[in-house]
């Protein structure tokens, strides 16, 4: 029975792997992320306006043909500010996800693999991280490190460690009981060799969609910290800070709409891709 179920899907697998069908919503999401990445890498290609230099005569203009997203209270072009702000918003989210994935996976891997007192100690550590409300914890860490965007990214990453550690631990425990791990032991594989060549690659499969999801969460949280003023100081135009700038001018709501729409679209795209990656293959 085992032989039959094993051989059939493995025959089909390579064929299914070549032609990955991408649903239209996922394609749109990927396209949008490509735009954001392009904005981050080469903002100058997309807008001729200087994000920092304002034209006082053109202040608080609504969206139009010259200023796509309108202008702010100093007459600065909002589209340009959003485009130039994306590098900082995207890279800080990347830093935060990297911290969460690396530290969280390591903790989860060790806890799930070593069991015993190591597992107990690490599990309590993760419980403690989970017990402190995430956003509050991030605020505390940022206030300890200093109000910079990179520190907001570190804080967001530290808060995310617990999530990755929990999922990784559960996956490791699941994979550890698989027959191929058993077979590898019987062939004389050492513990660390098996950990690196069999358990880590298999267990990290569910980490990838989680990391994409966390990327979106990180953008939201870092923008939230920037909104409170815990990011880089003014000439910087992080998305969260742009929303905060708009807060003072409720009669010019486009100052909120533009950066907010970019944040929402980006997070929505990331959520959609994460869901697609998580689908049963």
């Amino acid at each position: 029975m085992t032989v039959a179920t094993l051989s059939e899907p493995s025959l089909d697998a390579p064929r299914a792997g070549v032609l990955v069908r991408v649903p239209p919503t996922v394609a749109v999401s990927l396209l949008w992320l490509a735009v954001i990445v392009a904005w981050s890498l080469a903002p100058g290609l997309f807008t001729g306006h200087d994000p920092a230099a304002g034209t006082p005569t053109e202040k608080l203009l609504g969206p139009g043909t010259t200023h796509w997203f309108g202008t702010d209270d100093l007459g600065r072009d909002l589209f340009s500010r959003v485009v130039h702000g994306s590098a900082s918003s995207v890279s800080s989210a990347l830093v935060s996800v990297a911290i969460g994935v690396v530290a969280g996976s390591l903790i989860g891997l060790l806890a799930g693999f070593l069991e015993g007192w190591v597992d107990t100690v690490l599990a309590r550590f993760v419980d403690v991280l989970l017990a402190i409300p995430g956003f509050l914890f991030a605020v505390i860490i940022v206030s300890a490190l200093g109000f910079r965007t990179i520190n907001a990214a570190i804080a967001t990453g530290v808060v995310a460690v617990a999530v990755f550690a929990r999922v990784m631990r559960a996956e490791v425990i699941k994979v550890r009981q698989a027959t191929f791990v058993e077979a590898s032991y019987l062939q004389g594989g050492s513990r660390w060799q098996i950990l690196l060549t069999h358990i880590l690659p298999n267990a990290s499969r569910s980490i990838v969609p989680l990391a994409v999801l966390q990327f979106g969460v990180a953008i939201l949280v870092i923008a939230g910290l920037a909104f409170l003023g815990y990011g880089d100081p003014p000439p910087a135009s992080d998305w969260g800070r742009l929303v905060a700038d708009g807060e003072k001018f409720p009669f010019a709501p486009w100052m909120i709409y533009a950066p907010a729409a970019v944040i929402v679209a980006t997070v929505l795209a990331l959520n959609r891709i994460s869901r697609w990656l998580r689908r049963p293959a």
Binding site: G216, L220, P250, I263, V264
Partner: peptide, 22 residues
């Protein structure tokens, strides 16, 4: 749910303020 999860709390708050308060 996906949409609600993607809209930051402070953006919802500002929109609520603009429409219902101002």
């Amino acid at each position: 749910p996906s949409l609600f999860l993607s809209v930051p709390n402070y953006v919802v708050g500002l929109l609520v303020l603009i429409f219902f308060s101002f």
